[in-house]
């Protein structure tokens, strides 16, 4: 689904002493099938933005279009339930939202709410279990008997079981160890391609944004600071520094290689192996 923000502002508790403008005149477009990273510090407006994607919040001015759904101040959105079925949101620490007696019931809760029949749910279950790499033998167990990483998979399976077209991921790897982080990100990347999803990843990790996204939006205090392809965005050291973000590790390394050693390698989503091969070819001694 195409998504567009047109001059969106969101103010919490307007006309009160607690008035707070979380989004300020924000405009951008996301094409159907894109993998977009939204990067920004705590307080930059990322969470407020996410809540506009499935109608938990509405703009206080401007408008948001998600596929055919329109969110606009003072206007009732037609069939907002349909929107929420199509936009799956994996919130931060989603395992904190597990509540059912068994894993099966927890995963089925979402689709059931949206009117999926028992039969439909039974055909979806094995698919989502496979996607998140959970053993079907676990279905009868309580989700609370699982490890943290497994609990997160159950929570993600619950979102996938609604078969959303847009997947919104809010810091999906927070708190996981490096192996868990990579497994979860690789899983979302695979799903994105296999199912032709539109994926919106909210992250602090410049490295993940660089690795997975084909479009990046950088937010600062509710405004758009930069937008573009990761390869263009992440070389703008000064602009990133203005909002206290660092250039991703690998890009910084390539910049320094150039200034200090005169070795010029253009960033091209290299694997470390490929990168080192290029360094060897240029540094001498790699004959």
């Amino acid at each position: 689904m195409d998504i567009s923000f047109k001059a969106v502002s969101h103010t919490y508790q307007p006309n009160s002493p607690f008035e707070y403008r979380a989004l300020k005149d924000l405009s951008f477009n996301i094409q159907s099938g894109q993998f977009v990273a939204i990067v920004g510090h705590t307080g930059s407006g990322k969470s407020t933005l996410i809540q506009h994607l499935n109608g938990l919040l509405k703009p206080t001015s401007g408008e948001v279009m998600i596929g055919g759904y329109r969110l606009k101040a003072g206007e009732k959105t037609a069939n907002i339930k349909g929107l929420r079925e199509k936009v799956g949101v994996v919130f931060q620490y989603p395992e904190h939202q597990l509540f059912e007696e068994t894993i099966e019931k927890d995963i089925a809760f979402g689709p059931k709410n949206f009117g999926a029949t028992e039969e439909e749910i039974q055909t979806r279950l094995p698919k989502v279990l496979e996607a998140v790499n959970l053993d079907a033998k676990l279905l009868d167990r309580s989700p609370f008997d699982l490890s943290g990483g497994q609990m997160r998979r159950v929570a993600i399976a619950g979102v996938l079981a609604m078969e959303p077209e847009v997947l919104v991921l809010d810091e999906p790897t927070a708190g996981l160890d490096p192996k868990g982080q990579q497994e979860v990100m690789d899983m979302f990347y695979r799903l994105h391609h296999e199912k032709g999803l539109t994926t919106i990843l909210v992250t602090h990790s410049m490295e993940d944004a660089l690795k997975y996204a084909d479009h990046v939006i950088i937010l600062e205090q509710g405004k758009k600071h930069l937008e573009g392809q990761p390869e263009e965005i992440f070389v703008q050291k000064e602009r990133l520094k203005q909002v206290q973000l660092d250039v991703p590790e690998e890009i910084q390394f390539l910049m320094d290689l150039k200034t200090r050693l005169g070795i010029s390698i253009t960033y091209d989503k290299h694997s470390v192996d490929d990168l080192v091969r290029e360094i060897k070819a240029q540094i001498g001694g790699g004959r």
């Binding site: 160890d177 490096p178 192996k179 868990g180 990579q182 590790e249 690998e250 390394f253 470390v272 192996d273 990168l275 080192v276 360094i279 060897k280 540094i283 001694g285 790699g286």
Partner: peptide, 17 residues
Amino acid sequence: GLDVPFTAKVTNRLKDT
């Protein structure tokens, strides 16, 4: 289940050169 930093990865692959 752990991972070394980028610097270490590059170093370890450059060691033969």
